[in-house]
Amino acid sequence: MILEARNLGWSVRGRAIVSNVDLAVREGETLGLVGPNGSGKSTLMRLLAGIVRSTSGEVRIRGQKLHGMPRRQAAQLIAFLEQQAETTEAISVRDAVELGRTPWLTPLQPWSDEDDRVVRQALADTDMEGFECRSWATLSGGERQRVHLARALAQQPQLLLLDEPTNHLDIQHQLSILKLVADLPITSVVALHDLNQALGCDRVGMMSAGQLVALGPPRDILTAERIAAVFGVRATIVVDPEDGTSIFRFHTA
């Protein structure tokens, strides 16, 4: 059990945004989080990353309480990609990826060859070799998301948290980012918008009104009844004649 949330909740001015979430992430799995807009996916991700402090319950990473752990130590274990992190600074791709080494460096423990190696590897893993000297402003949306992913990999985390990494990307880039994540040998939790994409995860958790209402293998969780109840749409399953996989088709309820 790499990450464990118990009775996790977060409320602001008396209104619960996330409540009573119990969740255990298994070593090596890719866990998808789905739910309609405003169901608390992003907040849950930030709670799991330790960026937002829970108002009830707790998160444990490798058995240790996340709350109270120095940020630096937490960042050595967990990398978090928020939605659409942008900058107006004239930063280069290599600059951006090198940021991933931040939790491993101190003023007294400066940059080393090992850090260079990790950055090169992260760029290679995300197919961004040769882009090192490109300026951030000249990158496409898909390239930016890859750089963010490379930055997260340069953190050498044991757990990767991705909040809707395919948002605003065209379909080709959506698929390539997801494939990249799926192929990584690293435990990850991915918040997803597209239920068909969630079908490819090892397990899926479904959020509704701040609660985790279901958790399990995609086939068991993503049922027509549950989708109708949570998303308010009618879903039918269609089989792709090319490879025999089934996909959802949605209709207004």
Binding site: A49, R71, R72, I78, F80, T87, I91, P103
Partner: peptide
Amino acid sequence: SFGAESAASLGVPV
């Protein structure tokens, strides 16, 4: 560079 949340996730005690 990418905001305070990003800094926090990089281990900075924001």
